[in-house]
Amino acid sequence: MYPRSTLQTVLSALAEQAAVVLLGPRQVGKTTLALDIAAQTTSVYLDLERDADQRVLIEPDLYLDEQTGKLVILDEVQQMPGLFANLRGQIDMRRRKGLRTGQFLLLGSASNVLLHQSAESLAGRVRYVEMPPLQLDEVGRDQMTRLWLRGGFPDSFQAASDRASLTWREDFLRTYLERDIPALGPRVPATTLRRFWTMLAHAQGGLLNAAALAEGLGVSGQTIGRYLDLLVDLMLVRRLAPWHQNVGKRLVKSPKVYVRDSGLLHALLGLESAESLLGHPVAGGSWEGFCLETLIAAAPMGSAPFFYRTSAGAELDLVLRLPNAETWAIEIKRTTAPKVSRGFHLATADIQADRRILVYAGAREVPLGDGARAMPLDATVTLLRQQQGLPHQS
């Protein structure tokens, strides 16, 4: 098992807060991480997709009263939304007994569904942690091409062959479309949602054009928004917002859209091997999305990601606003030539960036002038990880 960076984040959160909600898509490794935590603590684990474990909580307060002093781990907690009110009472009761932290670890696969269920009941009592797929600094730089091709879902990344990996991802997509999404309530035909997801894959990293998507699917723009909201809520698609601070420029206002896991992107497009990927028109957008997700995952908790583009052509692939109020400007290029355009320098000046970085495919750090540096992806990840724990500024 690869060491997961999220483990320390969760342990730190449990040391400071009564409840922690661990969010992430199915099969990303949440249960494995929770069982690892269970092995290190006095705890009890329940999987609420199992009828037997749900029956244990028919009278939740009676059961949870007996677990006072233990870490209670509830997997797929969105299956029992009525439980959140009981958890609030349990947390408040334990606080009166002097037990203020490390009471509940809640795991869920649908981010906004779970957030809506828990936000009101557990306000001020919970911290949210998102668990991404396997990351570059977890598997090693020598595995970069494999991670890019197969994506970070552990079973896909560790499959015996590229063919076995692609088969796993195709099954994953089918399960989400035919079982998991209908279980959440939306009545969306699986074939329609698959076509929509594939259309997003073909436009990886492009500006959202809802009108073109609606015309291609024969639905309304409002329906496109609903489909996109669903995939964003499930943490399978990222809707990257444009930088919105007033810089006195005409800014692009549409978001950019990415399939978050590169392996799922390639499965949607039927790309099995590195050779087929490199020869495909989406290769550039795929690399950009892979780097972007890697960098966002490495950024300190509370960082806000954006992109920047003006109508005059000044552009940055990623702008990170860190919790300490620093602004990092990042351009991503799949090239070994460490060069940036005039538009990069204009954009970094517009937003008054504190750090100016070109993430490129070379192996060395190279100064580019005007405070900018060209850096390999792994070196940029290391630099972002070093910002963890810096003080927040309002």
Rank of each mutant, 00 (worst) to 15 (best):
E130R: 06
V126Y: 00
E138M: 14
L106E: 08
T101A: 10
A119S: 14
L99R: 12
L87G: 02
A123H: 03
R95W: 07
V139A: 05
Q117R: 02
Q103M: 13
Q90Y: 00
F84Q: 13
V113H: 06
F84V: 13
L114E: 02
Q103V: 01
Q90F: 02
V113D: 08
L87K: 03
L106Y: 11
P133K: 08
G140A: 01
V129R: 08
R141W: 07
R94C: 05
A119V: 01
N112Q: 12
H116M: 01
A85K: 15
L114Q: 08
L107A: 06
H116A: 07
T101I: 12
R125E: 01
E120N: 03
H116F: 00
S121E: 08
V129F: 05
D137H: 11
V113W: 06
G102K: 04
F104A: 01
Q135F: 04
R88Y: 01
D137P: 03
M93V: 10
S121L: 03
E138Y: 15
H116D: 08
L106W: 11
R141M: 02
G140L: 03
Q135N: 06
R100E: 09
P132H: 09
L99Q: 15
E130F: 09
R94F: 06
Q117V: 00
R96C: 08
V126H: 03
A110H: 15
L87C: 08
R100M: 07
E120R: 07
Q103K: 01
Q117H: 10
K97L: 14
G98L: 09
R96V: 12
T101E: 11
A110C: 09
D92I: 10
V129L: 04
R88V: 02
Q90L: 09
L105E: 09
E130P: 04
Q135P: 05
Q135E: 15
L99I: 15
V139C: 05
G89N: 14
D142S: 12
V129I: 14
R125G: 00
S118A: 15
M93H: 12
R141G: 11
A119T: 03
N86Y: 07
M93L: 13
